[in-house]
Protein backbone atom coordinates (compact mmCIF):
# COMPACT_ATOMS: atom_id res chain seq x y z
CA UNK A 1 0.00 0.00 0.00
CA UNK A 2 3.03 2.26 -0.16
CA UNK A 3 3.59 4.83 -2.87
CA UNK A 4 3.36 2.60 -5.87
CA UNK A 5 0.45 4.38 -7.49
CA UNK A 6 2.51 6.32 -9.99
CA UNK A 7 4.59 4.01 -12.13
CA UNK A 8 8.07 5.38 -12.77
CA UNK A 9 8.16 6.72 -16.29
CA UNK A 10 9.96 4.49 -18.73
CA UNK A 11 11.95 2.30 -16.41
CA UNK A 12 9.80 -0.78 -15.98
CA UNK A 13 12.61 -3.11 -15.05
CA UNK A 14 13.62 -1.42 -11.83
CA UNK A 15 11.90 -2.90 -8.81
CA UNK A 16 9.41 -0.37 -7.56
CA UNK A 17 9.26 0.67 -3.93
CA UNK A 18 11.61 -0.70 -1.33
CA UNK A 19 11.40 -4.29 -2.53
CA UNK A 20 12.09 -6.91 0.08
CA UNK A 21 14.54 -4.69 1.83
CA UNK A 22 14.34 -3.05 5.21
CA UNK A 23 11.91 -0.22 4.46
CA UNK A 24 8.87 -2.33 3.52
CA UNK A 25 8.20 -3.77 6.95
CA UNK A 26 5.82 -1.01 7.98
CA UNK A 27 2.94 -1.80 5.62
CA UNK A 28 0.56 -4.72 6.20
CA UNK A 29 1.19 -7.32 3.48
CA UNK A 30 -1.75 -8.14 1.20
CA UNK A 31 -1.20 -11.84 1.73
CA UNK A 32 0.85 -13.63 4.31
CA UNK A 33 1.34 -17.31 5.12
CA UNK A 34 2.82 -18.31 8.47
CA UNK A 35 4.11 -21.84 8.63
CA UNK A 36 1.46 -23.13 6.22
CA UNK A 37 1.25 -26.86 5.59
CA UNK A 38 -1.02 -29.21 3.66
CA UNK A 39 -1.24 -32.98 3.55
CA UNK A 40 -3.23 -35.15 1.16
CA UNK A 41 -3.78 -38.52 2.77
CA UNK A 42 -0.31 -39.64 3.79
CA UNK A 43 1.50 -37.29 1.46
CA UNK A 44 2.92 -34.06 2.80
CA UNK A 45 2.41 -31.70 -0.10
CA UNK A 46 3.55 -28.57 1.74
CA UNK A 47 5.10 -27.96 5.16
CA UNK A 48 5.98 -24.87 7.12
CA UNK A 49 5.99 -22.30 4.33
CA UNK A 50 6.00 -18.63 5.25
CA UNK A 51 5.89 -15.80 2.78
CA UNK A 52 4.48 -12.33 2.21
CA UNK A 53 2.96 -10.64 -0.81
CA UNK A 54 3.01 -6.86 -0.81
CA UNK A 55 1.32 -4.33 -3.05
CA UNK A 56 3.50 -3.30 -5.96
CA UNK A 57 5.80 -6.27 -5.54
CA UNK A 58 6.34 -9.46 -7.46
CA UNK A 59 6.83 -12.51 -5.27
CA UNK A 60 8.24 -15.37 -7.31
CA UNK A 61 7.61 -18.92 -6.18
CA UNK A 62 10.31 -21.11 -7.66
CA UNK A 63 10.63 -24.85 -7.53
CA UNK A 64 10.86 -27.97 -9.59
CA UNK A 65 7.96 -30.29 -10.34
CA UNK A 66 6.52 -31.67 -7.12
CA UNK A 67 8.05 -28.92 -5.01
CA UNK A 68 4.64 -27.80 -3.70
CA UNK A 69 4.08 -24.78 -5.93
CA UNK A 70 0.61 -25.87 -7.00
CA UNK A 71 -0.43 -26.66 -3.44
CA UNK A 72 0.73 -23.23 -2.27
CA UNK A 73 -1.22 -21.37 -4.94
CA UNK A 74 -4.29 -23.48 -4.26
CA UNK A 75 -4.13 -22.35 -0.65
CA UNK A 76 -3.63 -18.72 -1.69
CA UNK A 77 -6.44 -18.93 -4.26
CA UNK A 78 -8.92 -20.36 -1.75
CA UNK A 79 -9.18 -23.83 -3.31
CA UNK A 80 -7.89 -25.60 -0.16
CA UNK A 81 -7.58 -24.23 3.36
CA UNK A 82 -4.16 -24.95 4.94
CA UNK A 83 -4.04 -27.88 7.39
CA UNK A 84 -1.52 -26.17 9.63
CA UNK A 85 -0.21 -22.64 10.03
CA UNK A 86 -1.99 -19.42 9.22
CA UNK A 87 -3.09 -17.69 6.04
CA UNK A 88 -3.64 -13.95 6.50
CA UNK A 89 -5.25 -11.52 4.06
CA UNK A 90 -4.72 -7.83 4.91
CA UNK A 91 -3.36 -8.97 8.26
CA UNK A 92 -6.51 -10.87 9.27
CA UNK A 93 -6.97 -14.67 9.10
CA UNK A 94 -8.69 -15.72 5.87
CA UNK A 95 -11.38 -18.40 5.86
CA UNK A 96 -11.99 -19.07 2.19
CA UNK A 97 -14.35 -21.88 1.26
CA UNK A 98 -14.07 -21.42 -2.50
CA UNK A 99 -12.06 -19.54 -5.12
CA UNK A 100 -15.06 -17.22 -5.41
CA UNK A 101 -14.44 -16.01 -1.82
CA UNK A 102 -10.84 -15.24 -2.67
CA UNK A 103 -11.94 -13.46 -5.85
CA UNK A 104 -14.35 -11.32 -3.84
CA UNK A 105 -11.40 -10.20 -1.72
CA UNK A 106 -9.53 -9.21 -4.88
CA UNK A 107 -7.35 -12.29 -5.18
CA UNK A 108 -7.45 -13.41 -8.80
CA UNK A 109 -5.76 -16.52 -10.11
CA UNK A 110 -4.85 -17.04 -13.75
CA UNK A 111 -4.38 -20.72 -14.41
CA UNK A 112 -2.38 -21.83 -17.36
CA UNK A 113 -5.06 -24.08 -18.86
CA UNK A 114 -8.25 -22.66 -17.37
CA UNK A 115 -7.72 -19.12 -18.48
CA UNK A 116 -9.94 -18.88 -21.55
CA UNK A 117 -12.50 -20.65 -23.72
CA UNK A 118 -10.87 -21.13 -27.13
CA UNK A 119 -13.95 -21.00 -29.35
CA UNK A 120 -15.25 -17.75 -27.87
CA UNK A 121 -14.14 -14.30 -28.96
CA UNK A 122 -11.75 -12.19 -26.93
CA UNK A 123 -14.45 -9.80 -25.71
CA UNK A 124 -16.87 -12.59 -24.78
CA UNK A 125 -14.13 -14.30 -22.79
CA UNK A 126 -13.04 -11.09 -21.14
CA UNK A 127 -16.45 -10.45 -19.58
CA UNK A 128 -17.50 -14.07 -19.08
CA UNK A 129 -19.34 -14.37 -15.80
CA UNK A 130 -19.40 -10.59 -15.25
CA UNK A 131 -21.07 -9.31 -18.40
CA UNK A 132 -22.09 -5.63 -18.40
CA UNK A 133 -25.79 -5.32 -19.08
CA UNK A 134 -28.30 -2.63 -19.84
CA UNK A 135 -32.08 -2.43 -20.05
CA UNK A 136 -34.48 -3.87 -17.50
CA UNK A 137 -36.65 -6.94 -16.87
CA UNK A 138 -36.97 -9.28 -19.81
CA UNK A 139 -35.16 -6.75 -22.02
CA UNK A 140 -31.97 -6.83 -19.99
CA UNK A 141 -29.23 -7.51 -22.43
CA UNK A 142 -25.49 -7.95 -22.67
CA UNK A 143 -24.10 -4.53 -23.55
CA UNK A 144 -22.05 -5.79 -26.46
CA UNK A 145 -20.87 -2.41 -27.72
CA UNK A 146 -19.70 -1.39 -24.27
CA UNK A 147 -17.95 -4.74 -23.80
CA UNK A 148 -16.06 -4.43 -27.09
CA UNK A 149 -15.09 -0.84 -26.34
CA UNK A 150 -13.91 -1.67 -22.83
CA UNK A 151 -11.85 -4.64 -23.93
CA UNK A 152 -10.16 -2.62 -26.66
CA UNK A 153 -9.41 0.19 -24.20
CA UNK A 154 -8.16 -2.08 -21.43
CA UNK A 155 -5.92 -4.12 -23.68
CA UNK A 156 -4.46 -0.96 -25.17
CA UNK A 157 -3.82 0.55 -21.75
CA UNK A 158 -1.89 -2.59 -20.80
CA UNK A 159 0.02 -2.28 -24.06
CA UNK A 160 -1.49 -5.50 -25.41
CA UNK A 161 -1.81 -5.36 -29.15
CA UNK A 162 -4.68 -7.64 -30.13
CA UNK A 163 -5.61 -6.98 -33.73
CA UNK A 164 -9.27 -7.85 -33.43
CA UNK A 165 -11.28 -8.39 -30.23
CA UNK A 166 -13.79 -10.44 -32.26
CA UNK A 167 -11.34 -13.22 -33.04
CA UNK A 168 -11.71 -16.49 -31.13
CA UNK A 169 -9.26 -16.79 -28.25
CA UNK A 170 -8.10 -20.06 -29.80
CA UNK A 171 -6.42 -18.09 -32.55
CA UNK A 172 -4.30 -16.13 -30.07
CA UNK A 173 -0.82 -17.30 -29.20
CA UNK A 174 -0.17 -18.67 -25.72
CA UNK A 175 1.46 -15.42 -24.62
CA UNK A 176 -1.41 -13.30 -25.90
CA UNK A 177 -3.88 -15.53 -24.06
CA UNK A 178 -2.04 -15.13 -20.77
CA UNK A 179 -1.80 -11.38 -21.37
CA UNK A 180 -5.54 -11.05 -21.95
CA UNK A 181 -6.21 -13.11 -18.81
CA UNK A 182 -3.93 -10.80 -16.81
CA UNK A 183 -5.64 -7.71 -18.25
CA UNK A 184 -9.00 -9.23 -17.31
CA UNK A 185 -7.95 -9.82 -13.71
CA UNK A 186 -6.57 -6.27 -13.47
CA UNK A 187 -9.76 -4.79 -14.93
CA UNK A 188 -11.99 -6.64 -12.48
CA UNK A 189 -10.23 -5.03 -9.56
CA UNK A 190 -7.74 -7.67 -8.55
CA UNK A 191 -5.36 -6.51 -5.81
CA UNK A 192 -3.41 -9.73 -5.88
CA UNK A 193 -2.67 -11.58 -9.07
CA UNK A 194 -1.64 -15.23 -8.80
CA UNK A 195 -0.08 -16.48 -12.03
CA UNK A 196 0.33 -20.24 -12.37
CA UNK A 197 3.30 -20.94 -14.66
CA UNK A 198 2.27 -18.25 -17.15
CA UNK A 199 5.48 -18.56 -19.15
CA UNK A 200 6.20 -22.28 -19.01
CA UNK A 201 4.63 -23.23 -22.33
CA UNK A 202 5.93 -20.20 -24.17
CA UNK A 203 8.81 -19.41 -26.45
CA UNK A 204 11.42 -16.83 -25.52
CA UNK A 205 9.73 -13.85 -27.18
CA UNK A 206 6.29 -14.80 -25.91
CA UNK A 207 7.59 -15.24 -22.37
CA UNK A 208 9.16 -11.79 -22.59
CA UNK A 209 5.77 -10.35 -23.56
CA UNK A 210 4.09 -11.91 -20.53
CA UNK A 211 6.89 -10.74 -18.20
CA UNK A 212 6.31 -7.21 -19.43
CA UNK A 213 2.62 -7.42 -18.43
CA UNK A 214 3.59 -8.79 -15.04
CA UNK A 215 5.75 -5.68 -14.59
CA UNK A 216 2.80 -3.57 -15.78
CA UNK A 217 0.49 -5.08 -13.19
CA UNK A 218 3.13 -4.54 -10.52
CA UNK A 219 3.53 -0.89 -11.50
CA UNK A 220 -0.21 -0.44 -11.13
CA UNK A 221 0.20 -1.39 -7.49
CA UNK A 222 -0.93 -5.01 -7.58
CA UNK A 223 0.73 -7.69 -5.54
CA UNK A 224 1.82 -10.41 -7.93
CA UNK A 225 2.56 -14.04 -7.11
CA UNK A 226 4.47 -15.48 -10.03
CA UNK A 227 4.87 -19.24 -10.01
CA UNK A 228 7.55 -20.60 -12.27
CA UNK A 229 10.32 -23.16 -12.50
CA UNK A 230 12.47 -20.89 -14.60
CA UNK A 231 14.83 -18.56 -12.68
CA UNK A 232 15.60 -16.71 -15.92
CA UNK A 233 11.97 -15.64 -16.07
CA UNK A 234 11.73 -14.94 -12.36
CA UNK A 235 14.86 -12.90 -11.77
CA UNK A 236 14.27 -9.89 -14.05
CA UNK A 237 10.75 -9.21 -12.78
CA UNK A 238 10.81 -10.52 -9.20
CA UNK A 239 11.27 -8.56 -5.98
CA UNK A 240 11.23 -11.55 -3.63
CA UNK A 241 12.01 -15.18 -4.35
CA UNK A 242 10.52 -18.06 -2.40
CA UNK A 243 12.26 -21.33 -3.18
CA UNK A 244 10.40 -24.58 -2.64
CA UNK A 245 11.78 -28.08 -2.72
CA UNK A 246 9.91 -31.29 -1.91
CA UNK A 247 7.13 -29.43 -0.16
CA UNK A 248 9.38 -27.39 2.08
CA UNK A 249 10.76 -23.88 1.90
CA UNK A 250 14.42 -23.45 1.04
CA UNK A 251 14.25 -19.82 2.07
CA UNK A 252 12.97 -16.52 0.82
CA UNK A 253 15.28 -13.91 -0.58
CA UNK A 254 14.93 -10.27 -1.51
CA UNK A 255 16.34 -9.19 -4.83
CA UNK A 256 19.23 -7.45 -3.07
CA UNK A 257 20.20 -10.62 -1.25
CA UNK A 258 20.62 -12.92 -4.19
CA UNK A 259 22.16 -12.84 -7.66
CA UNK A 260 20.80 -14.61 -10.69
CA UNK A 261 23.61 -17.17 -10.51
CA UNK A 262 22.89 -17.87 -6.85
CA UNK A 263 19.21 -18.25 -7.60
CA UNK A 264 19.98 -20.75 -10.31
CA UNK A 265 22.34 -22.77 -8.16
CA UNK A 266 19.82 -22.75 -5.29
CA UNK A 267 17.39 -24.62 -7.42
CA UNK A 268 17.52 -28.39 -7.70
CA UNK A 269 18.92 -30.59 -10.46
CA UNK A 270 16.43 -29.58 -13.11
CA UNK A 271 17.62 -26.04 -12.83
CA UNK A 272 21.23 -27.02 -13.36
CA UNK A 273 20.10 -28.70 -16.51
CA UNK A 274 18.51 -25.48 -17.62
CA UNK A 275 21.61 -23.56 -16.81
CA UNK A 276 23.53 -26.00 -18.94
CA UNK A 277 21.09 -25.54 -21.79
CA UNK A 278 21.34 -21.81 -21.33
CA UNK A 279 25.14 -21.90 -21.44
CA UNK A 280 25.14 -24.13 -24.48
CA UNK A 281 22.77 -21.88 -26.37
CA UNK A 282 25.02 -18.90 -25.66
CA UNK A 283 27.91 -20.54 -27.43
CA UNK A 284 26.30 -20.53 -30.82
CA UNK A 285 26.85 -16.91 -31.82
CA UNK A 286 30.47 -15.81 -32.00
CA UNK A 287 31.34 -14.84 -28.43
CA UNK A 288 33.29 -11.65 -28.83
CA UNK A 289 34.96 -10.18 -31.86
Amino acid sequence: MTGTGEPPAGADRTPSGAGAGPGADGAVPLLETRGCGKTFGGVIALRDVSTRVRAGEVTCVLGDNGAGKSTLIKILAGVHPPDSGEYLVDGAPAAFTSPRDALDRGIATVYQDLAMIPLMSVWRNFFLGSEPSRGWGPFRRFDVAEARRTVRRELRSMGIDIRDVDQPVGTLSGGERQSVAIARAVYFGARVLILDEPTSALGVKQAGVVLRYIAQARDRGLGVVFITHNPHHAYPVGDRFLLLNRGGSMGEYGKAEVTRQELISLMAGGAELEQLAHELSREEPPVKP
Binding site: P99, R100, L103, Y111, L114, A115, M116, I117, P118, L119, M120, R124, F127, L128, G129, S130, E131, S133, R140, R141, F142, V144
Partner: peptide, 23 residues
Protein backbone atom coordinates in the same frame (compact mmCIF):
# COMPACT_ATOMS: atom_id res chain seq x y z
CA UNK B 1 -27.07 -10.35 -26.98
CA UNK B 2 -27.77 -11.58 -23.46
CA UNK B 3 -25.72 -12.80 -20.51
CA UNK B 4 -27.27 -16.30 -20.59
CA UNK B 5 -26.25 -16.45 -24.25
CA UNK B 6 -22.64 -15.89 -23.28
CA UNK B 7 -22.98 -18.59 -20.62
CA UNK B 8 -24.41 -21.08 -23.15
CA UNK B 9 -21.32 -20.72 -25.35
CA UNK B 10 -19.09 -20.97 -22.28
CA UNK B 11 -20.56 -24.11 -20.68
CA UNK B 12 -20.43 -25.84 -24.06
CA UNK B 13 -16.93 -24.63 -24.86
CA UNK B 14 -15.27 -25.48 -21.55
CA UNK B 15 -17.44 -26.31 -18.59
CA UNK B 16 -14.65 -26.12 -16.01
CA UNK B 17 -13.24 -22.84 -17.22
CA UNK B 18 -16.76 -21.37 -17.25
CA UNK B 19 -17.37 -22.41 -13.65
CA UNK B 20 -13.98 -21.02 -12.66
CA UNK B 21 -15.08 -17.50 -13.66
CA UNK B 22 -18.43 -17.81 -11.92
CA UNK B 23 -20.82 -18.86 -14.70
Amino acid sequence: RTRPGNWIFAVGGDDRAARAVGV
